[in-house]
Each structure stands twice: as structure tokens, then as C-alpha cells.
């Protein structure tokens, strides 16, 4: 029972194929295997279109693998995985609900009373620094504030796994740095396992315990790096100048660059490359 409640993610030999509208079979990811330990912060980097979002979808249970298995807490994922939360690049806030009502959704879906859900939502809004904004609608907030709301909404159910799909991809550099620091602060408090997708290698190294590098399409795991920078990490802007950070960053970039260039050549080089790859 204790085992079933932890957030260990085991992805074993997962392949995902899609049927394209023209009727062809398209392999998005191929034979992907890696493990995220409970409480571990794992970043996944790879060129666009390599199947990072697809991988997340199968961990959350929104999608099923064509081959292989995904296990969470030792149990094969079937249907929506219990105890996960999601954060997307695009806002997933309900524009017709106030900030408070948006954050309160998690507990309400879990069966909490409205009063209790709102009390907890208020508490979480305070934790992300948005006390006083409870009655605003999402469109009345800045991009960074909306991200904080999304963060509170994702963490309020105290998930054992937090999945983030390029959550800060649409933010400007300064806001992104601030949000990254806040994420680390909140994560230290409850320590869910994190599966964090990004195409920003600096962000991955600064935040994660482990970085998984994926190849260009069809995505496979090219390499896995352990990030041994001590925690708490402190400011993500400052850690970038530490020698160990630079060393790791260079090392991973050497692996990643090849894939990014290949993916770029494929989109820039037109359909002939695509044909060869298929």
C-alpha cells in the first residue's frame, strides 16, 4: 500500500504510434525507458516534435502507449493516474471562474465542500503571493500571475507527481527566472516527483536532479545525466555561473546539439529528409 502511494514513475519500453490523417502510421516515440524516483525532479529535454508531450500524456493516463508499459507507484497506468497534476505552457485556467474558484477546483473535484475548498484555495493563493487577487478573473492578471495561479491549482491537491509541459515557455526571461525560483521553493516544501519538460537546457540543469535527453523524432532516450548540484539551489540566475553548472551544461549540450541540428535540418531541408527517415 505504501508502495502504491509513492510517486515512482517507471517508463518501460514505451512506443507510441499515431495514425496520420492520410492513413500512414507515424511513430512519435520509440522504445523509451527511464525512471523517476519519488521526490525526484526530472527534466526532459529534446528538440521540438520529439515526443516529450506525448510521453507526459501517457504518464498522466490521458493517452495509452502502443507498446510497453508506464507504471506509477508500481501500478500500471490505466485511465487517469491518481495523484498527478499538470501544468501546461498555455493557460489551463477557466476564464469564466475567478482566481479563487479556479484554484478551488482541485479539492472540489476530489469531493471537498465548497467552503473547505475555498479556504484551502485562499491559503494556496497566499503561498504563491496572490493574496488579494482572489476575485479577479484570469484575463485581468499578468502572464506571470496566471502562472502562479496555475501553480497553486496544480499543487493544492498535494500531488505525488507534478507534470509540467514547458510551463514557463511563454514567459519573458525575468519572469521565467522568478517563477523557476518560486517553483523550487514550493517543491522543496512537499517534494512531489516532478517530470518537467523544457527545450531550455539551462532551465533543465538549474532545476533538475536528472536530465533525460531525447533524440529527434522518433523520440528515444539518448542519454540520462545526474545533476549533482547541491540543494537548496538558491537563485537560478546565479547558479548559472558556477563551474559545475557550466561543466554539466556543456556536457549535455554536446549530446543535445546533434539532435537539435538533425531536427532542424529535417524541417528546413524539406520532405526528402523526412522520406529518408521514415
Amino acid at each position: 500500500m505504501a508502495d502504491a502511494n509513492n510517486g515512482r514513475i517507471e517508463i518501460e519500453g514505451v512506443t507510441k504510434r499515431f495514425l496520420t490523417p492520410s492513413g500512414d502510421v507515424f511513430t512519435a516515440i520509440k522504445d523509451v525507458s527511464f525512471t523517476v524516483e519519488p521526490g525526484q525532479f526530472c527534466a526532459v529535454v529534446g528538440p521540438t516534435g520529439c515526443g516529450k508531450s506525448t510521453t507526459l500524456g501517457m504518464v498522466s493516463g490521458l493517452d495509452k502507449p502502443s507498446e510497453g508499459t508506464v507504471k506509477v507507484g508500481g501500478k500500471v497506468v490505466d485511465g487517469i493516474t491518481d495523484g498527478v497534476s499538470f501544468m501546461f505552457q498555455a493557460d489551463a485556467l477557466l476564464p469564466w471562474k475567478t482566481v479563487l474558484a479556479n484554484v478551488a477546483l482541485g479539492p472540489i473535484f476530489k469531493g471537498a465542500s465548497k467552503a473547505e475548498a475555498q479556504a484551502r484555495a485562499r491559503d494556496w493563493l497566499r503561498r504563491v503571493g496572490l493574496a488579494g487577487f482572489e476575485d479577479r478573473y484570469p484575463h485581468q492578471l499578468s502572464g506571470g500571475m496566471r502562472k502562479r495561479v496555475a501553480m497553486a491549482a496544480a499543487l493544492i491537491n498535494e500531488p505525488k507527481i507534478l507534470m509540467m509541459d514547458e510551463p514557463f515557455g511563454a514567459l519573458d526571461v525575468q519572469t521565467k527566472a522568478i517563477m523557476s525560483n518560486e517553483l523550487l521553493g514550493l517543491w522543496e516544501q512537499s517534494r512531489p516527483a516532478v517530470l518537467f519538460i523544457t527545450h531550455d537546457l539551462d532551465e533543465a540543469v538549474a532545476l533538475a536532479d536528472k536530465v533525460v535527453v531525447m533524440t529527434s523524432s522518433p523520440g528515444t532516450v539518448k542519454a540520462v545525466y545526474d545533476i549533482d548540484l547541491p540543494r537548496p539551489r538558491g537563485s537560478v540566475q546565479e547558479i548559472r555561473f558556477e563551474p559545475r553548472f557550466l561543466e554539466l551544461q556543456h556536457q549535455i549540450w554536446d549530446t543535445l546539439r546533434e539532435e537539435v541540428e538533425r531536427a532542424y535540418a529535417r524541417t528546413a531541408g524539406g520532405p526528402t529528409e523526412e522520406g529518408k527517415a521514415a
Binding site: 498522466s60 493516463g61 497534476s85 469564466w96 491537491n157
Partner: peptide
């Protein structure tokens, strides 16, 4: 919006809750 729908499902919304909190207001 598909993201909103996926988010509600992952947060544990039942079919009825998805309809009430997401689909009907969105279609309104």
C-alpha cells in the same frame, strides 16, 4: 479548449463535473 479539458480530468473531475464546470460554461 483541450488543455482545459485535460487539466480538469487530471485534477480528478468526474464526467458530470467536467460537463458542469468546463463544457457547459465554455459552450455558453
Amino acid at each position: 479548449d483541450r488543455n482545459i479539458l485535460a487539466n480538469a480530468k487530471v485534477l480528478g473531475a468526474s464526467r458530470l463535473q467536467v460537463t458542469k464546470h468546463v463544457i457547459v460554461p465554455s459552450a455558453l
